[in-house]
């Protein structure tokens, strides 16, 4: 187990290093002069030069790369071209906002999706199953931004049940500190993006759970569990669902990737000040340090998620041995 963990951590570091490198060069390949958004061309050439030096934009590419790697190791992401504030500071709060939206909603999506999928399989052939499967398939293939906008149109604009966007009512918490997260206002703002994301993300676990349950139900050990005189509920949850969860755990890393991509969309539509929105904003302003850091953090989230999913799988399946 210990050697497995060490190896697994090594993999993670390598993956992140590769991501960081890729990102560095990708950003340098982007069109446009990054200095243009920060350094007004109307400034004196001397002033422009000074700023270039300040941001290290005048050094050779390779040197910039080494500097970049060294800074990453000490979590120094540099300063935003746009605001001149340290990137790390800007990103902290954004990371928390994203996690608060994505983690609970993924958890809910998995739990609810798995339960509904299991029930659908158990009641197979009925009208309920057919409508659940059709709805999930339709939802899953709908674009997320369209669903989000539809939800805003219906629940925020027409029915006026939820605010249109943002994390709290603007101006209510000028300090933007932790008290904001404990307020009802925050929950009110969280509700709609949470619901939309949960609904969207639960389709995959639901459909997967249903189909694996269907093949599990035909297994001999399910028949034996029935023969033992266990209640249907016990057969369903303890025997069938427990096994059908395995493929769900295997696909978790992939789903996490989708969830992260989805968060960018959700945050943009709902003006949710998370990492995804920050990244979009940073890219549109060619704010390289910020965009890079946001990208890297998103990559880190995905890699960590994969790691957790792996460990989880080992807990679920006794046949897995870590060595």
């Amino acid at each position: 187990m210990a050697s497995y963990l060490v190896r697994r951590l090594g993999h993670m570091v390598l993956t992140l290093f590769a991501m960081a490198t890729l990102m560095f060069f990708l950003f340098r390949l982007l069109p446009g002069d990054p200095t243009a958004t920060v350094i007004s061309p109307s400034l004196y050439p001397k002033a422009q030069e000074a700023m270039r030096q300040q941001f290290g934009l005048d050094r050779p590419l390779f040197e910039q790369y080494l500097l970049y790697l060294r800074n990453l190791c000490v979590l120094d992401f540099g300063f935003s071209f746009q605001t001149n504030r340290p990137v790390f500071e800007m990103i902290q709060g954004r990371l928390l906002n994203t996690l608060l939206l994505i983690l609970p909603s993924m958890l809910a999506a998995y739990l609810i999706g798995a339960v509904i999928g299991a029930m659908a399989a158990w009641k197979r052939g009925g009208g309920a199953e057919v409508s659940v499967v059709l709805t999930a398939t339709a939802l899953q293939s709908a674009p997320l931004f369209w669903l989000s906008m539809l939800a805003i149109l219906l629940f925020s604009i027409k029915l006026d049940l939820f605010p249109i966007g943002h994390i709290v009512t603007p101006g209510l918490f000028p300090e933007q500190d932790w008290r904001m997260y404990l307020s009802l206002d925050f929950l009110h703002h969280l509700a709609l993006p949470f619901l939309v994301n949960t609904l969207y993300q639960l389709c995959f676990p639901l459909l997967l759970m249903r189909s694996t349950m269907l093949s599990t139900i035909g297994e001999d050990y399910i028949e034996l569990a029935r023969m033992k005189g266990l209640s249907e509920r016990r057969v369903l949850f303890r025997h069938a669902a427990r096994n059908a969860l395995l493929p769900l755990a295997t696909t978790l890393p992939m789903i996490l990737g989708w969830a992260v991509a989805g968060s960018v969309v959700i945050e943009t539509v709902f003006s949710w000040p998370g990492l995804g929105l920050l990244m979009i904003e940073a890219i549109s302003r060619a704010d390289y340090p910020v965009a890079q850091a946001a990208f890297l953090l998103i990559a880190l989230l995905t890699v960590l998620g994969t790691f957790v999913a792996d460990l989880l799988y080992g807990l679920l399946d006794p046949r897995i041995v870590y060595d």
Binding site: D220, Y221, L224, A225, H239, D317, P318
Partner: peptide, 14 residues
């Protein structure tokens, strides 16, 4: 009942 395929009759995760 002792089932036909004892090999598959036991739930692998319990």
């Amino acid at each position: 009942m002792v089932t036909q395929s004892a090999l598959n009759a036991l739930n692998p995760v319990l």
